[in-house]
Write a protein that binds this DNA or RNA. Structure first.
Length: 460
RNA sequence: GGCGCCAUCGUCUAGCCCGGUCUAGGACACAUGGUUCUCAUCCAUGUAACACCGGUUCAAAUCCGGUUGGCGCUGCCA
């Protein structure tokens, strides 16, 4: 058995799609599981749309996800001389030929076929004329139009898939001798690189019979094919720009790479548990167990997975990720417990800078301004007598205050609000926050007192 | 239009290959309750699905056929 070699072949014409990232993961997993190699080949035959920035984006995304290939990135354009050589061979053997039809003619033909409810295809009469080796026009593969052959392949995920050869037409393989088109370049490069398993998106299923014909014309060994289900948007169509958030790097500022990988992996494969590392995925992974149906990219689930990973992060990593080196370690669990996305860290900025808020927020339920002001003044007194670190003693003192200020006939829980609510708003400026006692223990005693004063002054 | 792929809760799915153990299980989301000043966490509970029709069979989510629907491709893009 040959050593397993797989690859992803993204085109550098935009951001690295999350679907590409999922494809990269499954390819990487398959390679790792089978002791094979994983390659990245930049598909840049479209010279007009390919950009260097896009290629850099692919590198950055892969590096971020830690799905680095064995060896350097391969660039399809570096292989042009080989493509030309192969194309010349096909031409000289009569397996490919120059088609001199104009694009207008081709378009007209296509429309007529559609009107006649026929399969759109172009069988070219130039194939058997003396024009067939004269440069000009595009190069097509000579396909047998009267063939009754069924081209089939055993998809490693879907089972046998069949196509009628006669419906293919003499499809295009190059714009010119030094300008190969996708289907031809992929086959040439995959063969050159010794790719054993082509694992790619479902949108390539209909390219497969064409590629098989090219493999045969070239006399190359046909690899195994496996077509991955598509990553879908909320409307169940292929996830695209209009759905937003299609670029892998779009997730870099809010999500941990392990979380995105975990999410993407579990989207079209069922692992033994919801939260799983990619090393654990390697152990369980079997190509044939990848699902067939497309899966909706569900951000809610991604958020949940991300929150699980954030809770597991150590203090140093949190500080680096959020770029807040001065953050106190004791504050971290309070924050990570409430974080879905990394940038939400700004909701906790009161831990390191003065909060700003509307004075109305200080009022809890139907209490009067006087009652709130009084509560704050009493709380201030409690803080003044507090040692600044013992949370239990502070809670006890504030509970006593609650009993004192509240109606003795109602339970303590209900009267605590009169003390805790304004205190919490004074410290955090928010209506939702961790326990104010926890916050007070993080801020210095002086800061707590200052913020209470600020709150009191806000009230008329 | 042609060709192809797919089809279980709102979403991701288990079960399907080897029919009965499925009054269809789990996770996310949602709802309710407990803890609670608020939020989050945690715990408990709940709502919610086999696309349809026919066949095979004692028995079908599971096997077969058809229909419908969704999606993909249909380029001198990849």
């Amino acid at each position: 058995m040959d050593k397993v070699k797989v690859r992803i072949a993204p085109s550098p014409t935009g951001s690295f799609h999350v679907g590409n990232a999922q494809s990269a993961l499954y390819n990487w997993l398959f390679a790792r599981k089978n002791g094979g190699d994983f390659y990245v080949r930049i598909e840049d035959t479209d010279k007009i749309r390919s950009t260097k920035e896009s290629e850099n984006g692919i590198r950055e995304a892969l590096a971020w996800l830690d799905l680095m290939p064995n060896g350097d990135f391969v660039r399809q354009s570096d292989n042009l001389h080989k493509h030309k050589e192969l194309l010349e061979r096909l031409l000289s053997e009569g397996k490919a030929f120059y088609c001199h039809h104009s694009q207008e003619d081709l378009e007209a033909e296509r429309q007529q076929q559609e009107a006649r409810k026929e399969a759109p295809r172009h069988f070219c009469e130039h194939k058997n004329t003396d024009k067939n080796k004269i440069p000009g026009g595009i190069i097509r593969l000579a396909v047998n139009e009267s063939s009754g052959r069924i081209i089939s392949f055993d998809d490693q995920i879907r089972g046998r898939i069949e196509f009628q050869e006669a419906l293919l037409g003499d499809f295009s393989i190059a714009r010119a001798i030094e300008d190969p088109l996708y289907n031809f370049a992929v086959v040439a490069d995959d063969a050159e690189m010794g790719i054993t398993h082509v694992i790619r998106g479902e949108d390539h299923i209909s390219n497969t019979p064409k590629q098989i014909l090219i493999y045969e014309a070239l006399g190359f060994k046909i690899p195994f094919f496996a077509h991955l289900p598509l990553v879908l948007g909320l409307d169940r169509s292929k996830l695209s720009k209009r759905h937003g958030g299609t670029g892998t790097l779009d997730y870099k500022q809010d999500y941990l790479p392990e979380a995105l990988l975990n999410f993407l992996g579990g989207l079209s494969y069922t692992f033994s548990k919801e939260i799983i590392t990619k090393e654990e995925m390697v152990n369980e992974f079997e190509l044939g167990k990848i699902h067939k149906a497309g899966a909706v990219f569900n951000v809610e689930k991604l958020n949940w997975i991300n929150s699980q990973y954030i809770k597991q992060l150590n203090n140093l990593t949190i500080k680096q990720l959020t770029n807040l080196p001065e953050m106190l370690d004791v504050a971290i669990p309070l924050i990570t417990e409430r974080l879905n996305k990394l940038s939400d860290i700004n909701d906790f900025s009161y831990l390191w800078k003065e909060p700003s808020y509307d004075s109305e927020l200080l009022n809890w339920k139907k209490f009067t301004k006087d009652e709130i002001t009084n509560s704050l003044n009493e709380t201030k007194r409690v803080i003044e007598n507090w040692n600044g670190s013992d949370k239990d003693s502070l809670r006890l003192a504030l509970d006593d205050l609650s009993k004192k200020l509240g109606d003795p006939s109602i339970p303590l829980g209900a009267s605590r609000g009169l003390v805790y609510w304004p205190f919490r708003v004074a410290l955090t400026g928010k209506e939702k926050s961790p326990d104010p006692v926890d916050v007070a223990a993080i801020l210095t005693k002086e800061t707590v007192l200052r913020r209470i004063d600020t709150a009191i002054n806000k009230l008329p």
